[in-house]
């Protein structure tokens, strides 16, 4: 049995609150950056960087309307569930050289489950709101979820499997461990190519997971007028926007942890507080780059797909790409 002291529990709780707060603030800030950059790419001015914060505060003071034919407790509970599950993932993510707040034996597996929770929550919320638009949105979200899960899991499992082969004695599904052992150093040329395939797979899964163009079919403004979220307003919508911001951070961090866990401090032979600060800063820069490429750039450059096209894209080419990556890494190992 592990010894758990009261102090440690209190420390964890305080840490959780701080991380949740920072996660949300950073998430909203990056959302602002994303909007600003997208606007610049579209040759317009765009909103100020603090716009997501303003939106959030505005939504908080707005009336919270529950439709007549909705199920109130589900309808109101889902935004909380979504936000909480997104925030929980944050506790398992290592930031730069800071180890994660919580870590156990199957972090990655847990994260994959937690990632599906917001989606399931939104599906339930959509069905509970009793609007035809939300209904269609919820159906589409379910189809999407079933489509992108396989490539996502393939990516994570491949890396875990490779780690387990190299270091049989350690807990390979802990993000901290993955963070400390970058995949690129462990594989040969064949595996390197495989890892690139896996990276691409994850890069395509990310906009789907975040419901961003071209995979924003569940919300599809011009078709479903917001789809899943069409009936949500006020506080509930504010919570969804926070959850969305947090999820963006989470997905981008996952890419970083799995593929770019490098820190900058060893380069300068730093240690102690300065190293942590620099690594955190470097992490934020990486986060920005990943979000820029995976979210902002893609959403500016393409049109929205249809649900059958999304489903096909994930099931056939993207899944194949992921599996190919897995096979290459496997071949690399046995050769």
């Amino acid at each position: 049995m592990m010894e758990v002291s009261l102090l440690e529990i209190i420390g964890r709780i305080i840490g959780a609150i701080i991380i949740a707060f920072i996660g949300i603030v950073v998430g909203l800030f990056y959302k602002g950056l994303d909007r600003k950059l997208a606007a610049k790419m579209q040759a317009r001015l765009g909103p100020p960087l603090r716009q997501p914060f303003l939106d959030f505060f505005k939504l908080m003071i707005k009336e919270n309307i529950v439709p007549e034919n909705a199920v109130p407790w589900i309808f109101n509970g889902v935004p909380v569930l979504t936000l909480v599950s997104a925030l929980t993932i944050l506790f398992y993510l290592p930031v730069g050289s800071i180890p994660p707040l919580l870590s156990g034996y199957g972090d990655v597996i847990l994260i994959i489950y937690l990632l599906t929770l917001p989606a399931i929550g939104m599906v339930i919320g959509g069905f509970a709101s009793g609007s035809p638009y939300a209904n269609v949105g919820a159906q589409r979200e379910m189809v999407m979820m079933m489509s992108y899960e396989l490539p996502l899991v393939t990516t994570v499992i491949s890396i875990g499997w490779k780690l387990s082969q190299v270091y049989p004695q350690i807990n390979v599904f802990s993000l901290e461990v993955i963070n400390n052992h970058p995949i690129w150093g462990l594989v040969g040329p064949l595996g390197f190519v495989g890892a690139i395939f896996l990276l691409l797979t994850l890069a395509v899964v990310t906009p789907g997971e975040l419901s961003k163009i071209p995979f924003d079919v569940p919300e599809a403004e011009t078709e479903l007028a917001g789809g899943l979220l069409v009936e949500y307003s006020g506080r509930n919508l504010a919570l969804f926007s926070l959850a969305d911001a947090t999820k963006t951070i989470v997905m981008a961090s996952l890419t970083i942890v799995l593929f770019f866990p490098y820190n900058i401090s060893p380069l300068f032979h730093l240690s102690g507080f300065l190293a942590i600060a620099l690594d955190t800063l470097f992490f934020l820069v990486k986060l920005f780059l990943v979000i820029f490429i995976e979210v902002t750039f893609i959403r500016v450059a393409v049109a929205r797909f249809k649900i059958d096209q999304v489903s096909f894209a994930y099931w056939v080419p993207i899944s194949l790409m992921g599996l190919l990556g897995l096979v290459l890494i496997f071949l690399d190992h046995i050769i």
């Binding site: 790419m41 579209q42 040759a43 163009i213 011009t222 500016v300 049109a303």
Partner: peptide, 16 residues
């Protein structure tokens, strides 16, 4: 049309 397809970049560029 581009906006209806969810391709807002083209909307802004063509209207410019």
């Amino acid at each position: 049309a581009a906006h209806e397809l969810g391709f807002d970049s083209v909307l802004f560029l063509s209207w410019r």
